[in-house]
Amino acid sequence: MYEFLAGLFKWILMSLVYYFLFNTIQIIRLTGWYGEKLGAYLVSNDDPAIRYELKENTIIGRGEDCDIVLNNPFISSRHASIIKSWRGYYIEDLKSSNGTIINGKKIKGKARLRDGDVIMIGPVKLTYRS
């Protein structure tokens, strides 16, 4: 009798182990490797109530089709983009005429964003928070 039960339940136990593994991988797929990230966002320095949530690829500029629209003559129509990667968020200047300045330094190519970085796009200052 016990042999029969043990032989039957070994299949169920094996399925349970793989079900456990499947759910683990689902969580990793959903939340990334180090658990659920608290979403990153940009805060306007002039008005802290204005927040822009960051997506996989966020484009900042004057153009209507941008994800974050900043209406200012010194800002290019597609000024900069913030890209999410597995290591965090990167900002890239999209060959804008006035450039993108982070913590007082003009960036060339890509730059990794850290919590509290001040991004200056034309005259507009935004703070990165994660």
Binding site: L5, I12, L16, V17, F20, N23, T24, I27, L30, E36
Partner: peptide, 25 residues
């Protein structure tokens, strides 16, 4: 958050079932 909770519950449930079956055996 909500979606991940579902999978966490499933993980916990499969762990419980595994332990119950093993210790009952």
């Amino acid at each position: 958050m909500v979606k991940a909770s579902r999978y966490y519950r499933a993980m916990l449930l499969s762990l419980y079932l595994f332990l119950i079956i093993c210790f009952s055996l």
